[in-house]
Structure formats: structure tokens, C-alpha cells
Amino acid sequence: MIEISGVSQVFQTSGRQSHLALSNISLTIQDGAFVSILGPSGCGKSTLLYIVGGFVAPSQGTTRVKGKAITGPGPDRGPVFQEFALFPWKSVLGNVMYGPRQQGVSSAEAEAQSRQLIEMVGLKGFEHFYPKELSGGMKQRVALARTLAYHPAVLLMDEPFGALDAHTRTRLQNDLLNIWERDRKTVLFVTHSVEEAVFLSDKVVVMTRSPGRIKRIIDIDLPRPRRRAELLLDPHYQKYVVDIEGMIDDTSEDELHP
């Protein structure tokens, strides 16, 4: 269980000015839930993810994972970034093996596990390629495998498919759901795409723009496993998308009249 209580984040901008990025966020995420955080750009949704990851310390408030306060990054929470952030000097296999090796897993064992994961994300045969030789979608598959390799209880996904073309994006969404169905990790997923959030999530958290506040939390009550072709025709899915888009529209209107 992830408990975020009363978290605020203030950034010092140039001079004495400060910018309130997050204001008093409280959110509880159950184990095994797939939760998306949705909001306009600049609403601090990524910052919230970094706080849970332990990469950024909040100005105020506390975050707990399984009852333990977060003081820094740890292998219980694995990030997947939009920028992939693969180690350019390591091959695909080397990247995926990095986590297990840090955890003290023997080299042979880590390699066996990693090869399995690489196969699972559909990159069998690319083990000895370097990241520069892969397409964007393939890079993100490697990044996902690298994070899964150290068995985090929570996946923190920071607009992971934001830099990909529409076609690749759809395929990766499907594959991510398939992988998630197997072990049902807790996923915190930041995105600005309403369809993506509704398609993937159990819960969608809609945020307002600067300062970032939670506007609404919507339970997505759609059957799983989800099939994209069925869902697109499902009036419930369509209604969720239209409703949430309406909420985002409201927050955009606010920006125009400060």
C-alpha cells in the first residue's frame, strides 16, 4: 500500500520567487492496483511520481510504502522514464542484468533471469544489441525489462509511452497490460492521454494545473482482461473518456482566467 499524505512541493525559481508545484496531495493506493495520474502539462504529476520514487524530497508531508516512510530510492519501487534512461555503454542484456547484479544475484543466475525477461518483452535475439541500435519502442521494452528484473513491488511509470508514435504506443499498452495481468504489481502511471489512462487503469486521479491538486478520483469499472477492440466499442469506456476529458477541459479553462 502506498500512502501519500499532505504532500506539497515548492520549487525555488530564480531570485526569491518560489513556485508551488504540488499542494496538499493525499492519496492511498492499494496493493496490486493500476492507478493513473492524469493532468495537463506542468501540473506536477511527474514530481509526485519522483517523490514516491524517493528521487525528490517533498517540501511538506510524508509518503509511505508498506508502512515504511520513504527516505530515498530503493529497489522496491522501480521507475520507467519517458526518456528510457538506458545505460548506453551496456548491451540490452547488460542493462537488464544491472539490477539483479546490484542485488547480489550471481552472474549466471542474473543472466538466465534477464534472458527470460527480454523474451517476455518480445526482444529475444536482441540481447547483445546496444540501445543506440534499437527503435524507441524497443528501448522502452528494454527499460521495462530492466526495471522488472529487480522485482520491484511498485512500478512507477513516468509518461513511458509519451515519446512513441501512435502505433507503437498501442502495442506497448497491450503488452504492458498482459505483463501486468501475470503478477499484478502496483502501478503508478503518469500520463496526459485520457484514453491511455482509462484503458489501463483501475483508478484515474485527475489533477488541476499549478498548483497541482487532486481534482477527482474516478474508479474505472471495466472488466479485465481488457481487449482494446472491444473496449473502443464499449459505451462505458466511451463515457469515461468523455467525462474525464470534460474535467480536463475545465482545468484548462481555469488557466485562461487566472
Binding site: P73, P75, R77, G78, P79, F81, E83, Q102
Partner: peptide, 14 residues
């Protein structure tokens, strides 16, 4: 060095 490279390594337990 890209910050997220460092974060990725820290999260992996470095």
C-alpha cells in the same frame, strides 16, 4: 550526465 540515468541506477539498488 542525465539525472534519470542516475535515478535508474539508484532505484536498482546502487
Amino acid at each position: 550526465v542525465e539525472q534519470k540515468l542516475i535515478w535508474s541506477a539508484m532505484a536498482a539498488g546502487t
